[in-house]
């Protein structure tokens, strides 16, 4: 007797239409400038800050979050150490996470964050505030170029702005369950 899998596959074989060609995706161009990225990031409630060197990241973070006691980072000396085996409580208490974004997408303000840049898979989502540091020249124009550049790895996410919802009467509320704000420091 056929198992469920084989039954589904054989029904598909019988019912599917005759083979249809897969066309090439045309080349779509766009504006990959920093200005365009910043404009689109702001439109999705992200805050871009340009600096001259990575050395400035720490003071910017301190200015933005003067009372934060628990900062986890792979870029600046944080105040809590988080790793892949951190327990739930330490993760849940992180106030600010400062992580390196791989590259930005100019057309929509999204930033690619692969697991290798997250310190811990949960960190970018559970931290109260998220800061992503991004190289000014690490921009691609659109999602086509973005998927040429990134690979699946184990886990990765395009993050476009802070966590948000409009589930109550279409009113936009920033800070649903994840990060209450997203600051993007461009170094």
């Amino acid at each position: 007797m056929m198992n469920v899998r084989d039954r589904i596959l054989s029904q598909i074989k019988v019912n599917k239409p005759s083979s249809l060609a897969l066309n090439e995706i045309p080349v779509f161009m766009g504006d990959d400038s920093l200005t365009n990225f910043k404009k689109n990031l702001e439109s999705i409630s992200g805050q871009p800050i340009e600096v001259n060197s990575t050395n400035e990241v720490e003071s910017i973070v301190n200015q933005l979050f003067p009372s934060a006691k628990k900062i986890a980072s792979s870029i600046i000396p944080g105040t809590v150490s988080i790793d892949t085996s951190s327990d739930l409580v330490s993760l849940e208490q992180v106030e600010v996470a400062v992580l390196r974004g791989e590259f930005g997408v100019a057309e929509n303000g999204a930033i690619w964050l692969p697991e290798s840049n997250m310190i811990n898979r949960s960190l970018p989502f559970i931290a109260q505030y998220l800061v992503l540091v991004l190289k000014k020249n690490d921009m691609v124009m659109n999602m086509h170029k973005a998927y040429e550049r990134c690979r699946p790895g184990n886990y990765g996410s395009f993050i476009a702005g802070p966590s948000k919802t409009a589930d109550i009467e279409q009113s936009l509320v920033i800070g649903a369950h994840g990060a209450r704000s997203l600051t993007v420091i461009l170094d």
Binding site: A110, G153, N154, Y155, S157, F158, A160, K164
Partner: peptide, 12 residues
């Protein structure tokens, strides 16, 4: 929206 806030890729 130009893209959802989180577009997450679960592989392993």
């Amino acid at each position: 929206q130009p893209i959802t806030t989180y577009t997450s890729h679960f592989t392993k």
